[in-house]
């Protein structure tokens, strides 16, 4: 299917916070109470519409364990958006946000849009991090913030789309040189071509296995 833009996302955060479940809910609209743990990096994609333009999201879902950070780092470069996820029922996953953010800031491009997600908000009775704390952290670090639930699908769609809308706005504002793929943005049909002029043209639309 053809797109005006393709945005690359990366999902990061501690192990077991629900990164893969958020992705599954977004791409397949279903929830797996117990999801296989992610080894290395996995991948998902979906089309959305922003400003009447078809936009393809290509999403890299990473492993949460500290040991895998070296692998995760190679995916920051070339990502336009990041979803930084913690689990509102596990305090330590919130405490580790600063270290995740430091990694992202160090290895991603400076204009990467970061969405902070407090996942599992359906488990209000086990809440260990208040909404205000999440909001405050986001405010202090210039992130967008939402609480969401991969289980009930609450705010899942919104989180992915709001991130895309922010990236789209940055393109409109001329923040990116969209011809430069290291920003994690590819131009398809109907997007604003970069200086080199709609460079991937038909090749990015075609039937290649990875489009």
């Amino acid at each position: 299917m053809s797109y005006a833009y393709l945005f690359k996302y990366i999902i990061i955060g501690d192990t077991g916070v629900g990164k893969s479940c958020l992705l599954l809910q977004f791409t397949d609209k279903r929830f797996q109470p117990v999801h296989d743990l992610t080894i290395g990096v996995e991948f998902g994609a979906r089309m959305i519409t922003i400003d009447n333009k078809p936009i393809k999201l290509q999403i890299w879902d990473t492993a949460g364990q500290e040991s895998f950070r070296s692998i995760t780092r190679s995916y920051y470069r070339g990502a336009a958006g990041a979803l930084l996820v913690y689990d509102i029922t596990r305090r330590e996953t919130f405490n580790h946000l600063a270290s995740w953010l430091e990694d992202a800031r160090q290895h991603a491009n400076a204009n990467m849009t970061i969405m902070l997600i407090g996942n599992k908000c359906d488990l209000a009775h086990r809440r260990a991090v208040t909404t205000e704390e999440g909001e405050q952290f986001a405010k202090d670090h210039g992130l967008i913030f939402m609480e969401a639930s991969a289980k009930t699908a609450q705010n899942v769609e919104e989180a992915f789309i709001k991130t895309a809308a922010t990236i789209y706005k940055k393109i409109q504002d001329g923040v990116f040189d969209v011809s430069n793929e290291s920003y994690g943005i590819k131009v398809g049909y109907g997007g604003i071509p970069g200086p080199s002029g709609g460079r991937d043209g038909s090749s990015s639309q075609g039937g290649g296995c990875c489009n």
Binding site: D36, I39, G40, V41, E42, I71, S74
Partner: peptide, 16 residues
Amino acid sequence: GEYLFAFRMLMVLFRR
């Protein structure tokens, strides 16, 4: 050329 797509295959010997 990092071949990261094969990371999981070799790490857990095709269990997945």
